[in-house]
């Protein structure tokens, strides 16, 4: 086994060169480069964390903005709703007034028409009475040969019609 056979002759050389090359690696790589690499990693981690925090903040802001917008929108909607309701009420009142007016007009027209009809009927009735009285006088004159006075005939007709 050379490790033991050559121990005495190579020990110092082995130790010396290992210390030299390990020491060089330690100083150049370990002390010189590794902290920088770790720093790069840390810098990146910090950047990522910062970016994430910024994104979170932006998101929170957007959420707040949306909330505010929603509140504003709701208020606007309520106001619009109130406006519509008011207009509706106004329109309904106007319609009701117009209707009432029209109704009144119609009622008076109806009443007038009814009165006219009534008048026409009564005048027609009077005419019928007159005609009936004349007819009755004629009949009485032809049948009985009596000449009765128009007033008497009229009274008789009136009496019959009242019973009739």
């Amino acid at each position: 086994m050379p490790q033991i056979d050559q121990l005495s002759e190579t020990l110092t050389s082995q130790v010396f060169w290992l210390l030299v090359f390990f020491g060089l690696t330690f100083v150049v790589v370990g002390l010189g480069m590794v902290p920088k690499i770790l720093g790069t990693v840390e810098m990146r981690d910090n950047q990522i964390a910062g970016d994430l925090a910024a994104a979170q903040a932006a998101r929170d802001a957007a959420t707040a903005e949306e909330e505010a917008w929603r509140t504003r929108e709701n208020a606007n909607r309520a106001a619009a709703q109130a406006l519509i309701g008011e207009a509706k009420a106004k329109a309904a009142a106007a319609t009701a007034a117009k209707l009432a007016k029209a109704q009144g007009k119609l009622d008076t027209q109806l009443a007038e028409a009814e009165a006219a009809i009534e008048a026409a009927r009564s005048s027609a009735m009077a005419e019928v009475e007159g005609v009936a009285a004349d007819v009755a006088r004629d009949i009485v004159a032809r049948v009985a040969g009596a000449d009765i006075k128009p007033a008497t005939a009229k009274a008789a007709v009136k009496k019959v019609m009242a019973h009739g």
Binding site: E9, T10, T12, S13, Q14, F16, W17, L18, F21, F22, L24, T25
Partner: peptide, 15 residues
């Protein structure tokens, strides 16, 4: 003795 041996050479290559 600090002769530069094959062992030292491979340590150097490793480094």
């Amino acid at each position: 003795n600090i002769a530069f041996t094959n062992s030292a050479l491979w340590m150097a290559i490793t480094a």
